[in-house]
Design a protein around this nucleic acid. Structure first.
Length: 804
RNA sequence: GGGCAGGUGGCGGAACCGGAAUACGCGUACGGCUUAGAACCGUAUCCCGAAAGGGUUGUGGGUUCAAAUCCCACCCUGCCCACCA
């Protein structure tokens, strides 16, 4: 009989919640060694969780349970990243207030998570939209502001026409909005930005000490994009005042520079206006290129365009030659100095441009970098590709930026005692599209007195981006012990943080490689600098779970209709089967399609475990070896997140145990299904089976708990007295190293590298003995045809190879 | 164009510190059980061949007693970045 997963899983979820074991909670300042196991928390979207979201959560749950069984004090919390566009767009579409939508969605998410049987410490649950929470998001912003790291300026920004807000560079993908895929326009707007570039070097260097997947580190390195070079000045002829500064990583090619190119946005062009003979043409070109979106620029397949500034020449400082000056949009204002020296002999882009516009391409001797820089009066310089983080959004559903704009005093910080600046209720929270946030319309909220001079002033009406709340949430869990409020300034917090930080194991998707993970590292480093955090990095070890594709091999999405919800799967196969299938289907980090058929294999396995537990099982002692090997294998595999092979090992062990059943009746009953009352306590077999159950427990927590309690390990009834004994509070089984080693092995006999025979031999067989036995074998004699081996290769415990 | 990861049965994958390629699971076939089906149990299942035997880890080459594993060249797929000077 298959087990009744609906009944069993509900029952234990209720018991676990009701009993709320202290052992499942993280214990601040506990004596056991701490382990902080963290999931990237979800956006509670309206669609609910799909099976792909669960892969990471299942993995971290297995790890957490395993660490608890190994005697660690595990902090494994969960919360909600509920501000931002997904929540707001959902609310707009369904015509409910985002606050209400988020509440509803969180309820649904929590229900879904609980139905999978996760062992989260819900006493530390957080929600980034909770004013008690975002009070501290705002507080950190104010510290950044006071340190000069948050500033407002006219900046070139990305504007999403559909989301009607500016975006950070990190949120633009292939020239389109990462969120909605719409075109992104380049605009100049007055915006708040965070000076992440001030941390570029530290963000780069400290990657080395992190136990992160190498590709993620590489992505961050590329994003930061450090390059060393020099800034070199080119004098202008006629001398109109000012010089053209260029940045180059190859000053050694300076002799080959045959023209100079300015970015269309380069302000120098305005200074030169009076001398430009073809001003009209130049201005037309500039206007045109400004109109292009990034997407358009890319679609034009990098076909070079540009216009010469006639009447203007630059002087190559290496050889004093006069060279032409051009304006072209292949040079970007936002990188370097917004001007380049073009070396068409050496640089492919310059060559393409030179060929198109018939500019000279000359050979040059390469010279010593440092010497030439010195000689022409240039200076060494380091450039980063990383830009400051555009931090304001013209949207309603975010943390208000806690700044008051006073006509007299300028931008004034909201006094700390006035935090949080609560997001006001509004009737219309739709984005305006004018560049103003919907908050600007709430006059009773906007109009305030300046905290500095007392005069009339207005609140900043932009809100923070979605990433703000997730920049410090791992600290919030630490702060929020047992439902207390957040406070990250006092010594109590600092003691807790010192106890728990850094996060020992952080699990989430690759998609955050240069978004959340870079932003959070930046904030953490700032918090370190102001003495809030004591570690240089927040997340010591990072693992990425692989993406789950739909059954059609495509990315799961509502529009494709290939989204698999955990709800139906749990209904049909149970949470334990779902958990195991997700871990078994591929290596943890691999992308994988969902195969609706394969999950039955895991369910079959669990049914066989159930049957085994229903009937007593006298297992013969030869299983001991397999058992010890499995204890070793499963433990090692869990530590390395090789869950697929851990499960395979458990399957092999169960197969083995079924083969070794000595009681004929039990054997029969296991093979058929049928009622049997028999259960003996104290059998050898039961001991072995119980060990197997413990190994399986982190993967299939419900089923193992049920069998465990049925085996006489006191069920939950009658709790809270001392009756409770959950399998999840048991110790992880230990293996006997002697029993892991095999006594015998299949000795492979090769002749010229080809397998010709094999026979069983004791592990400690000597080479001479193995040779003697090998040469005596019929098959070998036949294959040798009287030839004598000219060489014998002997690999202990594996093979013997006769070379003739 | 640059960087990174990866190509193994009908499918997901295992082995990858060089040592039996295809563990484990899905699927499929046949048999059992069953009034029948489902479920379950058993057996088989990389390819060619009746067998002996031979072949097989994207392709081609190399190193080695021995290569899925190491080296070189090429092809393909996925992800990230992309006119960053």
């Amino acid at each position: 009989m298959p087990y009744d997963h609906k009944k069993i899983e509900k029952k234990w979820q209720k018991e676990w919640a009701k009993n709320n074991f202290a052992e499942w909670h993280a214990e601040d300042f506990g004596a056991k060694q701490k382990k902080y196991v963290l999931d990237m928390f979800p956006y509670p979207s309206g669609e609910g969780l799909h099976v792909g979201h669960l892969v990471g959560y299942v993995g971290s749950d297995i790890a957490s349970r395993y660490f608890r069984m190994n005697g660690f004090n595990v902090l494994h919390p969960m919360g909600w990243d509920a501000f931002g566009l997904p929540a707001e767009n959902y609310a707009i579409k369904n015509k409910i207030h985002p606050r209400i939508a988020v509440e509803k969605n969180i309820k649904n998410f929590k229900k879904q998570l609980n139905s999978v049987g996760f062992s989260y410490d819900w006493s530390r649950e957080i929600n980034t939209t909770d004013p008690d929470y975002y009070k501290w998001t705002q507080w950190i912003f104010l510290q950044l502001f006071k340190s000069g790291l948050a500033y407002e300026a006219d900046l070139p920004v990305n504007w999403c026409v559909s989301c009607k807000t500016v975006l950070a560079n990190e949120e633009v993908k292939d020239g389109a909005c990462d969120r909605c895929g719409s075109a992104v326009l380049q605009k100049n707007m007055r915006q708040w930005a965070l000076k992440i570039t001030a941390y570029a070097d530290r963000l780069l260097e400290d990657l080395d000490g992190l136990d992160w997947p190498e590709p993620i580190k590489e992505m961050q390195r590329n994003w930061i994009g450090k390059s060393e070079g020099a800034e070199i000045e080119f004098k202008i002829n006629p001398p109109v005042g000012g010089v053209i500064k260029v940045f180059t990583t190859r000053p050694d090619t300076l002799f080959g520079a045959t023209y100079v190119v300015l970015a269309p946005e380069n302000p120098l062009i305005q200074n030169l206006e009076s001398r430009i003979q073809n001003l009209e043409e130049v201005e037309k070109y500039i206007t045109q290129s400004k109109k292009k979106t990034q997407l358009q620029r890319q679609k034009e397949e990098k076909e070079k365009t540009g216009v010469e500034l006639k009447g203007i020449k630059a002087i190559n400082p290496a050889n004093g030659e006069e060279i032409p000056v051009w304006v072209a949009d292949y040079v970007l204002m936002s990188y370097g100095t917004g001007a380049i020296m073009a070396v068409p002999k050496h640089d492919e882009r310059d060559r393409e441009f030179a060929e198109k516009f018939k500019l000279p391409i000359v050979d040059m001797p390469l010279v010593n970098k440092d010497e030439i820089v010195k000689k022409v009066g240039g200076k060494k310089q380091t450039q980063y590709r990383l830009r400051d983080w555009i931090f304001s959004r013209q949207r309603y559903w975010g943390e208000p930026i806690p700044i008051i704009k006073c006509p007299k005093c300028g931008n004034v910080a909201v006094p700390e005692n006035d935090l949080p600046v609560k997001l006001p209720e509004v009737k219309n929270y739709k984005p305006t599209g004018t560049g103003e946030s919907p908050l600007a319309a709430v006059s009773e909220w906007v109009n305030v007195n300046c905290p500095q001079c007392g005069g009339k002033a207005k609140r900043e009406t932009n809100t923070m981006p979605q990433w703000a709340g997730s920049c410090w949430y791992y600290l919030a869990y630490v702060t929020k012990a047992r439902n207390s409020k957040f406070e990250i300034r006092d010594s109590d917090f600092k003691r807790r943080a010192r106890f728990w930080l850094p996060v020992d194991l952080y699990i989430g998707g690759v998609e955050h490689a240069v978004l959340h993970l870079l932003y959070a590292r930046f904030w953490h480093k700032f918090l370190y600098d102001i003495g809030v955090a004591h570690t240089k990095e927040p997340f010591q070890k990072l693992l990425n779970q692989g993406l789950v594709l739909g059954p059609d091999g495509q990315k799961m999405s509502k529009s494709r209709g290939n989204v698999i919800s955990p709800n139906e799967t749990i209904e049909k196969f149970g949470a334990d089967a779902l958990r195991m299938y997700e871990m078994f289907m591929s290596p943890f980090g691999d992308q994988k399609p969902w195969d609706p058929k394969s999950i039955v294999g895991l369910r079959r396995f669990l049914d066989r475990v159930w049957k085994f537990g229903q009937h007593f099982a006298d297992i013969d002692s030869r299983v001991a070896r397999a058992l010890n090997q499995t204890i070793k294998k499963v433990g090692e595999d869990i530590e390395e997140f090789h869950f697929n092979t851990a499960i395979s090992a458990l399957m092999i062990l169960l197969n083995e145990m079924e083969k070794r059943i000595t009681h004929p009746l039990a054997s029969l009953e296991l093979r058929r299904s049928g009622p049997t009352p028999s259960q003996r306590e104290g059998e050898n077999g039961e001991g072995d089976f119980v060990i197997f159950l413990k190994l399986l427990a982190p993967f299939a927590p419900h089923l193992t708990e049920e069998i465990w309690s049925k085996l006489g390990n006191k069920s939950a009834q009658g709790r809270p007295a001392s009756g409770w004994k959950s399998i999840h509070l048991e110790s992880w089984p230990e293996y006997d190293p002697k029993l892991v080693e095999e006594e015998a092995f299949q000795l492979i006999v090769q002749i010229n590298g080809k397998v010709r025979d094999k026979f069983e031999a004791p592990v400690n067989i000597s080479q001479s003995e193995a040779e003697r036995l090998t040469l005596a074998r019929e098959k070998v004699k036949l294959a040798l045809e009287n030839r004598k081996p000219r060489k014998v290769v002997w690999v202990p415990k594996r093979l013997i190879n006769l070379v003739v």
